[in-house]
């Protein structure tokens, strides 16, 4: 059988792992334990089935993105493999700009063709001059087909992309990269509790994840927590926003039994968001066993929340985190 990688075909022997086969042809993929434990050899199947053992121990979100472990993958048929995160572009037009609060811009884009992504994933936006930045999508594909892809953008003084967006006019052209990120809802246990906590514009992708969960008939409690450095940063307000708009128009999915709670905290009051997260996690009691956490926002707060949940007993496999980092200038 044939293995295709970066445009070249490599012959794979029966029973040989993807990692072994590539190494035999002189292509070294990153690896460490070579026994399916450490996940250093993570790659993505673009086409074909990497075999039944290829996904063991991986988060469902990674499986859905096609990720598998090259060291234990023994495909029975042809397979096309890519490095994690390789990209393709879709042209798009800026359709609307709206200041949610000073410093936070809601950006809407119309791609030339629909982009398949999952609520909570991020896309790269590239200008004609090559400047490229990654932003999380704040709505869902069905909603995006009606109003455009929506992004909540923190505008930084001197930010190469964000300041340009703040001055841009509808009609401006951009290119959109392939969706990436493993911070999205996975069906399979509709009764579990979802703990979604974010700082700043991290609440954007979390809203998309919550909408996606409801659209996919999630029935368990959904706990949303938004933290910001200043009261004005709580740009979606202190009461729970409408999450039903995530449903496709005319669908019968709008009625949900999920109990959604919404909390906000101002971090300058001496409150740390990880304390709120820890308190909510502890309050879950027995429900912690099946709970999933989604964390988005600045890297410092995401790291602290993730560590707090891990130390409280949550497996890293149940914590989906997306850290926003400022681009190096």
């Amino acid at each position: 059988m044939l293995l295709t990688f970066e445009g070249r075909d490599y012959e794979l022997r029966p029973g040989e792992s993807v990692l072994e086969g590539m190494a035999r042809h002189g292509v070294g993929l990153p690896s460490a334990c070579r026994a399916g434990s450490c996940q250093a050899c993570l790659v993505r199947a673009v086409r074909g089935d990497p075999g039944p053992d290829a996904h063991r121990g991986l988060k469902e979100t990674w499986r859905e993105c096609g990720y598998f472990l090259a060291c234990v993958a023994r495909p029975a048929s042809d397979l096309t493999v890519a490095q994690p995160g390789s990209d393709v572009f879709t042209p798009a037009t800026l359709s609307a700009l709206h200041w949610l609060v000073p410093g936070v811009l809601r950006v809407r884009l119309r791609p030339e063709r629909p982009i398949g992504f999952r609520g909570g994933q991020h896309l790269t936006l590239s200008r004609g001059d090559g400047v490229t930045r990654s932003y999380s999508v704040a709505n869902l594909p069905a909603e995006a087909e009606r109003v455009g892809l929506e992004f909540h953008v923190r505008v930084y003084p001197g930010g190469a992309m964000s300041e340009w967006l703040a001055r841009a006019r509808p009609g401006a052209r951009l290119r959109i990269g392939a969706p990436a990120g493993e911070c999205f809802y996975t069906p399979g246990n509709p009764g579990r509790t979802l703990l979604l906590a974010g700082t700043g514009t991290g609440i954007g992708p979390l809203m998309a994840i919550a909408k996606d969960a409801l659209a996919r008939h999630h029935a368990g409690p959904i706990v949303l927590i938004h933290g910001a450095a200043r009261p004005a940063g709580l740009y979606l307000g202190t009461r729970c926003p409408d999450l039903e708009t995530g449903c496709p128009p005319g669908s019968q999915q709008a009625i949900t039994t999920a109990k959604v709670s919404w909390q906000t905290c101002v971090l300058s009051d001496g409150a740390d968001i990880e304390e709120v997260v820890n308190r909510e996690y502890a309050a879950l009691g027995d429900r912690t066993r099946t709970a999933k956490a989604y964390l988005c926002g600045g890297s410092g707060s995401v790291t602290r929340m993730r560590r707090a949940l891990f130390m409280a007993g949550m497996s890293l496999a149940d914590i989906h985190a997306d850290q926003f980092t400022a681009a190096a200038s």
Binding site: C33, A35, S37, C38, L316
Partner: peptide, 23 residues
Amino acid sequence: MDRQIAKQAAFLTVALGGPNNYS
């Protein structure tokens, strides 16, 4: 944390008598 756990998992695989591919 992810990289640290990956490294410790690779070491533990060997220490527990699993496949020894750890450099």
